[in-house]
Design a protein around this nucleic acid. Sequence first.
DNA 1: AAGCTATTTGCACAAACGTGCAGAACGGAG
DNA 2: CTCCGTTCTGCACGTTTGTGCAAATAGCTT
Lengths: 320, 320
Amino acid sequence: MPRSRHSDALRAAQMYYLQDLTMDAIARELRTSRSTVSRLLSSARDTGLVQIQIRSPLDTAPELERLIREQYDVDVHVVPVLDTLNEAEALDRVAMQAARTIGPLVDSNAIIGIAWGATISAVSRHLTRKITHDSVVVQLNGAGNMQTTGITYASDIMRRFGIAYGARVEQFPVPAFFDHASTKTAMWKERSVRRVLDLQDRMSIAIFGVGSVDSSYPSHVYAGGYLDEDDLKLLASSDVVGDVATVFFRADGSSDGITLNERSTGPSHEQLREVRRRICVVSGASKIDGLRGALAARLATELIVDEATARRLVSYGDSA
Amino acid sequence: MPRSRHSDALRAAQMYYLQDLTMDAIARELRTSRSTVSRLLSSARDTGLVQIQIRSPLDTAPELERLIREQYDVDVHVVPVLDTLNEAEALDRVAMQAARTIGPLVDSNAIIGIAWGATISAVSRHLTRKITHDSVVVQLNGAGNMQTTGITYASDIMRRFGIAYGARVEQFPVPAFFDHASTKTAMWKERSVRRVLDLQDRMSIAIFGVGSVDSSYPSHVYAGGYLDEDDLKLLASSDVVGDVATVFFRADGSSDGITLNERSTGPSHEQLREVRRRICVVSGASKIDGLRGALAARLATELIVDEATARRLVSYGDSA
DNA sequence: AAGCTATTTGCACAAACGTGCAGAACGGAG
DNA sequence: CTCCGTTCTGCACGTTTGTGCAAATAGCTT
């Protein structure tokens, strides 16, 4: 009689969620206290034993989602957020809902690419466990910069994903930007680097936020000491509106001729577009310009976005 | 601003299940009372907007499930049921869990075959709504008998399935058994009947219980006036142990040479085995013999069964 | 507009639930 | 065996949630 914790949790979950019994009744059946059952159920929920999913049938989806879906051809999840919340709280809500939306999409044998950043960091803190086999979490772009190696920050994010899905973690130990494009070319031939690049080539899910050059709330990349004065000037003169995984683009989604990209370590847009599921998480109205560009570049197949930003996405929607 | 009931339910569900807000907080956001939110969430649950699923990773599945899976090669869901419950209460629990397990398996464009009976009737009463498109629910075997047409009973079951999945319902207006095999042959050429048979040929999901000849608790078919004295004698002399959708089989799963099957209206076992998902629901230890036969005949790909019966399935498991 | 019925709402209360805390049970290390 | 650190359990309390009921509202008919 394996009266193990795990199998008790399973029984409890079945009785609670599938048979509508009360915790009290389950406690009697399991010969334990009601509080223990309450705890069993919590653990069942956050070990991913119980999966709660919200599926809004496409034809009854709210107007807003329908509009965005049509205009940008992306599978959109609008996160309802009280607009009195401040940026940090809103980000937290979006991140929590993103984490739970991503869960069901991850499967065994997945290769999951992660572009670290403030948004994805928040997501990583809300992941619910889901056991998979032979999955790999691979870092999409380097994290080193001129002051620090930035490694602990990025690797914390990676580790959380790895733990949540029981996946192997592959770090990408290079700087975010090389100083010289030639160094990148050289490194890209190293076998240690190739291993990571090969994984990126084969990834089945990519998860990323967007950076936006919007001045009021510059994202990590623009403020964190990754770029110097000259770089920033270069960006401004190329009409860059934002980036995904440190690869920059313009408002129309194009990225040709942006020389900085030759020194950045993230996957090119061509490469990214090869990935089947490309999940973009965005919170905060200041990201609107970057987001528009990313969508124009067709970098995402699914978009998880807060309600206010979603509204602005369609408001002056007819592109010039 | 479509402040419709449905979209409110969606917002509430997202905030409750995906962002862990309390109903109180959601009520303020939606400018309504907490009780309304409670009701919105109920309706979200039973219109299938919120899907709760329990996925026990195969390798951590309890011993019992693993054993059955290996021995009978069937995807098994053991329903924990307190063994002090009476037959009717246990059936209800199994039915509820079956209904919720089936839900996620039904998809748009499905053709769902239903074999009416006491077990499936109970299941039909616990279905949760899930909107699909262009699905059809088709009756697998006739319901008429010598006393009544049996139609209301069977059609209630069918209707409930149809409503739950937003599917068209196709009745099968023939008796459960013909008196003469030749009548069946004739009827099977009628175009009205052919239409139903064609649907059955193309079904993607079949849902059925099992009948068992066990004397202590004879199932509907054996007691309901569908068969006369001679028929029952015939069954006994052919070593029949049970039936699925009024087609009979022996303990080893074989059904050749059982003449009654030539007059019955359910799909042949060959035909049934062509169906991708074949879901068998069983409650009650008296069904054990029929169940063994059905599994031997490989009629089911998924089995939903109460714990006590599941145990007996493996107890003297080494087949003679 | 009035009148009628069916549905929806909020209130109030009871039932069900989550969690800090203190003690019990467990698991090595000495 | 004893000690100490960790994990697990049940209790008690406050919070959160479900639901019967009466009032309000919406939908229809005349």
